Simulated assay, not measured.
Amino acid sequence: MRKPVIFIHGLWLHASSWLPWIDLFAERGYEPSAPGWPGDAGTVEETRANPDAVAGHGIDDVVAHFAGIFESLPVKPIVIGHSFGGMIAQKLLGLDLAAAAVAIDAAQIKGVLPLPLSTLRSGFPILSNPANGSRAVSLTAEQFRYAFGNAIPEAESQQLYDRWSIPAPGKPLFEAAAANFNPHSPAKVDTANESRGPLLLMAGGKDHTVPETIVRATLKQYRHSHAVTDIVDFPDKAHSLTIDAGWREVAETALTWLKEQGL
């Protein structure tokens, strides 16, 4: 049986941005797919045309959405998530719903304290207006360049923006921002779970949105569990590392690690 792999995108990228990864993982013998978040349409263009469909969905909604998808699978899947998708992947792993997880530049979970200025600037288009908690918000090309494409040529950043960017719900960002003040925050992950599958955290050294300091602080949250928790750094990569010209290095690293875990 081919092992299912579920890819989970983060804010402002459409699920179809995982297509190169899907092709590569299929070649390597997996059964990969990339379902969208609640409200996502099948294409970038359709999602842009109906932003209200994605508005208002928070972290718990996304976790429940993917948990339902996992239930339809014959075995626990491997889950690979980027940005907020990386947070969702960790939550699903902590709930013992996944066989393993790869969290790439994952949004900060409850308990992670560093809040670099670049992270605040990246989230400013949403966090600057409390009303955005119930809205969907799009990035401009300039904002995308800062949040995603700062380590690649400007022309490539523009190309990625034109091809993959979509409106994103503001609610998850507000939930993450308030996580350490809310004892029941949806950004809380069961990091002490001893029985969960292995986890790989990936960090981009030039990431503005989720700097390496956040990923390192996330790793420390797992110190009370003996379950496998590894980290890999990509010093010259930023938040676009899953979609830019260097994506294959990141994907191959994930494949090598999965093989090492017997998966």
Rank of each mutant, 00 (worst) to 15 (best):
T140I: 03
R48M: 06
L127Q: 11
L73E: 00
A53W: 12
D60W: 02
A151R: 01
L73H: 05
P130F: 13
P51S: 05
A67D: 13
L120N: 11
S118R: 12
D60S: 14
Y146R: 10
G149C: 01
L139K: 05
L95Y: 11
P125C: 05
K76V: 00
D52N: 14
S72M: 14
S138M: 12
T119G: 01
D105Q: 13
A147E: 05
S138G: 13
I69P: 02
I88K: 04
A107T: 12
A147H: 06
V112F: 05
L139P: 00
F124V: 05
G56F: 07
H57G: 07
K76W: 02
D96K: 08
I59C: 02
F124S: 09
L117Q: 15
V75L: 03
V102I: 15
L139D: 01
E71R: 15
L73V: 05
A98L: 03
G68K: 03
A106V: 07
V44T: 10
L95D: 14
A67G: 13
L120P: 11
L117E: 15
I88V: 11
D96I: 05
R135S: 10
A103V: 08
E46T: 06
V63S: 01
P74K: 14
N50I: 08
A107V: 03
V54P: 07
D52Q: 15
T47F: 00
V54Y: 00
R135F: 06
S72W: 10
L115E: 12
A106T: 04
